[in-house]
Design a binder for these strands. Structure first.
Lengths: 340, 340
DNA sequence: CTGAAAGCGCTTACAG
DNA sequence: CTGAAAGCGCTTACAG
């Protein structure tokens, strides 16, 4: 077991100063061709690699960014990570992934822990609990310290920073309009409780589409799910008690569950009831029937968020101006087998 | 925008030495109650947090580990990350997630980049390309430097280190035996090419089960898929050209695709053909019919791997002995609707 | 062309 | 009880 070699050791071996070694390795013209070659050869032989931590301390940046998300099991977040990772790696940045598990406390702890030099910036999507509490002090604190933050998907207007979102309202409007265009009027909505920002926006888009088409909004057709553990029975009641033409679900789990329950109730999808989901994940793709869905393009969101963050990190402090952008990523309706 | 406060600044403000500040904050008994309180109050007011990077450099450890995986989009890997993250966070460690994208080069670059002080240890699953090349020098190099590595799932016998695996052979044997017990004899296998270690082991388990039950192994019923882009047609031929009773697929994508194709060919699952998959992911759970599958328990694998790694990290260098364990995580057959 | 010094932000053995 | 010094591993302005 041979420990990593340091500049100091090389200097000692070669009987030169540490400065000379450092400069030689960085190809400084200050150093004679001769010494440079000697040092470089030696360094190569011993497989010298500069210590990242020392560099971080010296440069006051870690070349590492953090993506802080509520859950990794959700396919959407996994795709975002994938997008972030690619852009970051390309620019020589590492990515720390942190999970808040939808908990406010964990979100705070994670941010405080990493904001002390470990990372250069955050990409984050709010936990449910944070959205509910509307307490964002941990985020504004980090921003106040001069650390850039990019929020995506679950964002808040209470914090000024770069954001990457989709137009949830419009996407939901379009999905609903698509169903209306097929001639449906009794369209159910399976959504989340209102404090989840994207759920609320999607609900609004649905309502707007109905109103635009002079369809009366029937609260009985709107199911707001709070608890992700036991929502099957709620969906069952919705489908049982209302003779729906179609359903718009704000995520793919709700959509696929609706299909399963419809089947059990003897309603064929899409013959008897059409279903549209949200988020183009593997469930939608591999479900039978495969699910027509609003494609959210997590990879693109991640890439964009990473690009925005790195841009902020790369500009010199002097020319830094506080100017925040909100990028809206295009969604598209992917038609599959769950709609006629 | 107010920068993070340092010991130096506090020292200056309070007109004491940096050492005194440092000791006060660490509650050293060397310091008078008075100074201690004064310093602590001031630090709290200015929200002082020690700089992680400086601590890392000083302590020669970063309290960060890396999980290096081929893909994050695969649900299995996402669950492993989740397990690793929980255990690590509990012990005050951060987790860097790196993706090799199944590429040998990316795996090497990632490891070399992080092995220089950024992290204290690796948890990893080999990329396909690495398994194919059988080139593991990057891993042995890291281990030689004294950095602990824990491999999981896709491991190799060529490297001595801690490992967390499932008994792929046995799990496949059991799954196949389950089908045989139902009275099936014409059982197809959809697997990967042999250089993917787990694919090979699962293939062997399948063959062993057949042989144990005196069923002739028919190579025509074994489909080895190399390219994940275009395997539908291959599965289609398999199902079309052979009147199978059942299919054992080594992952859930293959399993769900088999179901879809069977449906299209007019074969009902499970009435006409039973299907068992591998990896208990969301696809298996939400597919219609839901899929009977070998549950791999990624969370548990991740937790175990993290525990093993942290254990190595926490023991003192002196008492460190090179002793490697291979933990086998139990699998279980989750019966659902795709088998009779 | 080479090296000593200062510094990034911290800790700690040692001196006073 | 307090502080100066050395050190973690590096870079770089400056002196010689």
């Amino acid at each position: 077991m041979r420990r990593k070699v340091t500049l100091k050791q090389i200097a000692k071996e070669l009987d030169v100063s540490i400065s000379t070694v450092s400069k030689s390795l960085r190809d400084s013209t200050e150093i004679s061709e001769d010494t440079r070659q000697k040092v470089q050869a030696f360094a190569k032989l011993y497989n010298y690699k500069p210590n990242n931590i020392a560099l971080s301390l010296k440069n006051r940046k870690s070349k590492t960014i953090c993506i802080l998300i509520p859950e990794i099991i959700h396919h959407f977040f996994a795709t975002v990570i994938s997008g972030v990772e690619h852009v970051a790696n390309e620019k020589g940045y590492n990515v720390i992934v942190c999970l808040s598990d939808e908990s406010f406390d964990k979100e705070v702890i994670n941010m405080e822990m990493l904001a002390n030099g470990s990372i250069d910036g955050f990409i984050m999507s709010l936990s449910k609990e944070t959205q509910q509490k509307k307490d964002f002090h941990h985020i504004s604190e980090v921003i106040n310290q001069g650390m850039p933050v990019v929020m995506f998907d679950r964002v808040t207007n209470d914090i000024l920073c770069d954001k990457v979102i989709i137009d949830d309202n419009l996407a939901a409007f379009n999905a609903t309009q698509h169903l209306i265009n097929k001639g449906f009027r009794k369209i159910g909505l399976i959504t989340t409780v209102d404090y989840v920002s994207v759920g609320k926006l999607r609900t609004e888009g649905y309502i707007k589409a109905l109103k635009t088409n002079d369809i009366k909004v029937d609260e009985n057709l709107i199911l707001k799910i709070e608890d992700t553990d036991n929502f099957e029975s709620q969906i069952k009641s919705l489908l049982e008690n209302n003779d729906l033409d179609a359903v718009f679900a704000v995520n793919e789990i709700f959509a696929v569950t609706a299909i399963k329950i419809a089947n059990k109730l003897g309603k064929k999808v899409p013959e008897n009831i059409s279903i549209i989901g949200f988020t183009d994940g593997i469930i939608s793709k591999y479900s039978s029937p495969s699910i027509t869905t609003v494609s959210q393009n997590g990879v693109k969101m991640g890439e964009k968020a990473a690009k925005m963050l790195l841009e902020k990190l790369e500009i010199e402090e002097e020319e830094y101006e506080e100017q925040y952008k909100t990028e809206v990523i295009e969604t598209e309706l992917v038609e599959r087998e769950s709609t006629i």
